[in-house]
Simulated scan of single mutants.
Amino acid sequence: MNDEMQKKPDYGKISKILVETLKLPQSPVAVKLAKSPEGIPEGVEEIKDTVRHCQMVAMAGREGKIFYARADKHACAGGAWALGLKEITPSLQTGEFYFKLGKFESWASCMRTIKSIPNVHKTSSTEPATYATVYAPLEKTPFDPHVIIIVSQPVMMLKFAQALLYKMGGRIHSEFSGIQSVCADACTQPYLTGKANISLGCDGSRKFSGIDDDYMVMGIPAEIIEEVAEAVPIVSGAPGSKTRK
C-alpha cells in the first residue's frame, strides 16, 4: 500500500516559493504516515537513533535529512500514540503522566485533555494504524507527504493564515493544549481533518527539538499545499502586508 496522491505537485517549486517569499528559517518538512512497508520510498533508510518525532522534524527541516522511523525508533510515547504507531500507555490515558509533571491540577483535568488530543486509530486488532513515519525537507521529498510542517515566526504564520483564506475567506480555527504540539497538533490533526492547524509549540518540542522561543508550528495537509503556495506571494505582496524584514 503505497498511499500516493493521484495529483503530482511540484514539491521543489512549492518549497522554493514558501522559503524565498517568507524567508523561512528552515525548510518545510514533508511527513508521511506510511501504513505498510510498501509505503517506504525505495532508497530511504531508517533512522539509527531513537528520538522524538519533533526531533525528527527538526532533522529534516534544519539538516536536510531524509529517513523513516518505525515505532521502536520513537522515544516519546505520547507522540508515537498520536501518530498511530503505538497504543496509548496507561499512565498517559489516566492522566497520571502529565499530572506528575505538574501541568494539571487534577488527574481528571489531565484525562479530559488527553481524551481531546487527536490520534490516528488503528484499523485492525493486530496491526497499528501507522507502520512508520517518513520525513524529508519538502524540496527533496521522494514521496507524497500527508502533512507539511512549518516552523517559523508568528508573522509568517499570519501570511500562511491569509493564504489559507485567500480563495474562500472565513476564519482560522486552531486547536492545541500546550502539549504534543508537533505530533498531535501539527501532524495528526491536519492528517485527520484535512485542515491546517496552528500550534504554540510545547515544552517538550522546544526543549528537545530546539524550536526557538519566538517560533510557532503549523501543519498543512498536503492536498492543499499547492494552493497555499500560490496564494502566499499574493498576500505577502498585497498593499499594507507586513512580513519579516
Rank of each mutant, 00 (worst) to 15 (best):
F104M: 01
I211N: 08
I225N: 03
E45N: 14
E87Q: 12
M156S: 15
V147Y: 09
S36R: 00
S124L: 02
Y68T: 00
I66C: 01
P239D: 11
L200H: 10
D49T: 12
V182T: 14
I225A: 05
G12E: 10
R112Q: 13
R112K: 13
D214G: 03
K65I: 00
S15E: 15
S205R: 01
V51F: 01
F104K: 00
K8Q: 12
I17T: 15
S125Q: 10
E38M: 09
H74P: 00
I117A: 05
L83P: 01
A136V: 02
Y166Q: 12
S209G: 06
C76M: 02
R244I: 15
D10T: 01
G102R: 06
P90F: 04
L164K: 01
T141D: 04
I172D: 02
F160W: 08
P90D: 00
V29H: 06
S27Q: 15
G64H: 03
F208S: 11
D212F: 06
E63N: 12
L158N: 14
L92M: 13
R52F: 03
G102S: 03
V235T: 03
P142D: 09
D212I: 02
S174W: 07
C76N: 06
K73F: 04
M1W: 03
S174E: 07
N119W: 13
C76V: 03
G169D: 07
L92Y: 08
T126H: 09
G12S: 10
S116T: 13
E175H: 12
A184H: 01
E20H: 10
V31S: 04
F104N: 00
L164P: 02
E127G: 00
K100W: 08
C110G: 05
G194P: 04
Y191D: 02
I17Q: 08
G237I: 10
R206N: 02
I66L: 01
D144P: 10
Q55C: 10
L22S: 11
V235E: 06
K13Y: 13
V51C: 06
